[in-house]
Design a protein around this nucleic acid. Structure first.
Lengths: 216, 216
DNA sequence: TGACGATCATACCGATCGGTATGTATCCTA
DNA sequence: TAGGATACATACCGATCGGTATGATCGTCA
């Protein structure tokens, strides 16, 4: 196994395990065991468990960013972008029944406030997500798809709040059909998309298998 | 210390500690230490840590229910009820900077999926919350405060999702002013309250100190 | 008064936690 | 080909985890 292979195997295993339960519960031993490496290897690549989590956050974002850039590609209309986002959230996190919620949507709630670097990593991640939301809202507004204009930065946050909430709900109540309905309904309502445009667009984005997808 | 005193002290201490960090991180030893009782007393009153959590959930709900019943009192108009709810969510969970989010909003994300009785306790709690939301939505709809009628059961869920999301956001980003703005804005939008009624009502509910409030 | 159950207090359990010390095999470079 | 850095593997550390066994103290009621 090459250097990067070991490192990435650890990152992906950690993400998968945290994904399935939570940061506090998943131990370094278990991560190593599942990844098929020893503790010596773990602490060779990462200085601590918290550091691993931060690196995993960055790794996760790096992968997700590619999806997001495809979803929000300028070749898609704003409405298509929104539908793609819904598709993405649904497919990547809810299709497999064993996986509920998103480790980073949830992570804020999983981690004690004492670990500063972890908090910062999560804040950065949420800020990134909100930035993407903001771009979408600006596009929707420019395309006259919205009933009213408002504080778009705020609307981007509202979007984030809501998506976060739905994902967390899915963690406790993995009722796929319900989530499938609530996700678009809430977003259309929150953003104030003109009702004529509701449920009128088919997504142009399709989930592709990737390292992170396989984890789910 | 009487029997009920010890038991309630343990429940309240557990809630406070879990509130501040999370279920996995807070140990039985720490709960006992903070509560000023010994482990013997703990395991005399509760058969396990998970059982304590379930009991604490019920205890918490029992206290919160009183607030909710006051908030949704029929003497208040639906708009006042909504404003009261916002006030309640904000005051009870965000006023103290050290406390971020809600232990039970977050708990779904904090607990491994392996503990069945804990999951059930949380599902029950969320169902209760959604039931209250539903009553509010029906009242708003009946009072012609909403722009459109829809699946009210779903709308009650959407409300829950959003509130959950805002609370979790507050956990990582304890920016009180932002939350203060986002909470009503999102709820008005989600529920589709006619814009003429936005921010027009003053709350009739005021937080009163209680055992659980002091925890915060 | 004496027996008994309720309410704890103390001491301890094996397991596991995150982390480390040290040894070793491999590889690149000089 | 010597030597040092890299990439691990193994064994172990003290601390803490949830939980238990046992005994002391108390009020209660026969």
């Amino acid at each position: 196994m090459s250097v990067n292979e070991t490192r990435e195997k650890l990152l992906e295993t950690a993400l998968a395990l945290i994904w399935q339960s939570n940061y506090s519960v998943v131990g370094v031993n278990e991560i190593c065991k599942q990844a098929g490496v020893t503790k010596g290897a773990f602490y060779h690549h990462f200085e601590s468990k918290a550091n691993l989590f931060c690196e995993a956050t960055a790794y996760y974002w790096q992968v997700v960013k590619q999806d997001l850039d495809a979803i929000f590609s300028p070749v898609n209309s704003p409405l298509e972008q929104l539908e793609n986002l819904i598709q993405f959230l649904f497919k990547s996190k809810l299709s497999d029944e064993r996986v509920r919620g998103c480790p980073f949507f949830n992570a804020g709630a999983q981690i004690g406030t004492d670990d500063e670097q972890v908090i910062e990593a999560l804040q950065h991640l949420s800020q990134m997500a909100i930035t993407y939301n903001l771009a979408l809202i600006k596009a929707l507004d420019a395309g006259d798809y919205l009933e009213r204009s408002g504080d778009m930065q705020q609307q981007a946050r509202l979007m984030y709040h809501y998506i976060h909430g739905v994902m967390s709900y899915a963690y406790v109540q993995p009722d796929v059909d319900t989530i499938r309905k609530d996700l678009p309904e809430g977003l259309y309502r929150l953003l104030g998309v003109k009702q004529a445009y509701w449920f009128t667009v088919s997504p142009t984005w399709e989930a592709e298998p990737s390292a992170l997808k396989q984890m789910a």
